[in-house]
Structures are given as structure tokens and as C-alpha cells.
């Protein structure tokens, strides 16, 4: 996606799409911060993919390792584990607050029933006396379905994806 293909405003139809997408992302952010993971999972369409690449600009999810590359089914396993008290990483549970901003939609990638939305997210996590900040660009493909907008894919490009990390379990 290059600058020319991104619009933040303009035609009325685009403004309406942008408003809908922004509202959707705010709602998603609220669910994740509230720890309502099952509700969050319901935002995903059945064939949705969730991807946190391990390299900047990573193109391939099969031949290059990723921090997370999961579908809805695998995410449901991840989420089940988050609520288990024997998950040491979430006991005590992490708390997060996130800000979603710079929401833009791509006209080039637009299809009839879907919308490609980029945003910037800062996620501040606190857990067991430790504080950390995740900064990322998110790319959502949102799909219009009978049940309203659903996530067809979510890609999270952490600015430090290829750096040294400590383990984390918060859902980004």
C-alpha cells in the first residue's frame, strides 16, 4: 500500500466506511482490554487469520517463522489457556490499555464485500510489577457479513518484531 492509495476522507461513501471501520476497531480494542476474549473471537469470521510477523515487511507465513500465525481455531485454544489459573504467564493476569489511531482505509485493496483498514496501536501492558509497551501497525481486512462487519484477517506489525523480546501472552 502506498500513500496514494490511502484515504482518510474524501467522498461521502469513504467517510462512512471509515467511520464504520473506526467504530469497529474501537470496539475490538475495548473487548481486548476488558479481557472479553470469547467476545473478541466472535468478531472473527470463520476463515480468519491472525498474524504477528517476526520480520518487518514479512511476506510469507509458511517459510518464515512468525511470532503468531494462527486461525480462529488455534486462537480458541490460546484463549482457553488464558483463563486457566495454571497459566503462570497470566497469573497474575496482565492488564492492558490500548489506543487505536491513525485509522485509514485502502481504496486499492478494497473489494466489494471487504475493506482493508490500517491503524496504529499502542498497547500498554502491566503484569506482576512489569510494564511494557507494544507499538504496532495493524492491518485489518474487515468483511461485510449477514452478522455485520467481521475480521477476515488481522496482521500486527510490531515495530520491534525482529528484536530481542521477553515472553508475552497478552492478546494484541
Amino acid at each position: 500500500m502506498n500513500d496514494a492509495t490511502i484515504l482518510s476522507s474524501g467522498a461521502q461513501a469513504v467517510d462512512a466506511q471509515l467511520a464504520a471501520a473506526t467504530k469497529f476497531l474501537y470496539h475490538e480494542a475495548w473487548l481486548l482490554d476488558a479481557g472479553r476474549y470469547t467476545d473478541w473471537l466472535n468478531l472473527l469470521d470463520e476463515d480468519a487469520e491472525y498474524w504477528i510477523p517476526a520480520r518487518p515487511g514479512q511476506k510469507d507465513s509458511k517459510n518464515t517463522p512468525s511470532i503468531i500465525y494462527e486461525n480462529k481455531d488455534l486462537l480458541s485454544m490460546r484463549i482457553r489457556r488464558l483463563s486457566d489459573p495454571r497459566t503462570y504467564q497470566t497469573s497474575p493476569a496482565p492488564r492492558t490499555r490500548r489506543i487505536v489511531g491513525n485509522v485509514l482505509i485502502s481504496l486499492e485493496a478494497a473489494q466489494n464485500d471487504s475493506l482493508t483498514v490500517t491503524s496504529v496501536v499502542f498497547i500498554h501492558e502491566y503484569r506482576d510489577e512489569q510494564r511494557r509497551l507494544f507499538s504496532a501497525q495493524c492491518t485489518h481486512v474487515l468483511r461485510e457479513t449477514a452478522e455485520g462487519l467481521k475480521i477476515a484477517s488481522k496482521r500486527i506489525d510490531l515495530i520491534d518484531c525482529d528484536a530481542t523480546h521477553t515472553a508475552f501472552m497478552s492478546l494484541l
Binding site: N63, P65, I68, R78, Q89
Partner: peptide
């Protein structure tokens, strides 16, 4: 076959990524 490498890649992600559902509990311990 390429798919054998894809398995190695997924093995690495599942066991050794910062968001691994396995390694993170070891690190905490």
C-alpha cells in the same frame, strides 16, 4: 519437500516464539 520445512517453521513458532504457549511458562518458572 517444502512442507517438511513448514513443519519446522511451525515447530519453532509454537515452541520458541515470544508468544509461545509453551516456552512462556518455562521462562516464568
Amino acid at each position: 519437500p517444502d512442507e517438511i520445512f513448514h513443519r519446522a517453521v511451525r515447530f519453532l513458532t509454537t515452541l520458541s516464539s515470544p508468544a509461545s504457549m509453551i516456552y512462556g511458562d518455562d521462562a516464568t518458572i
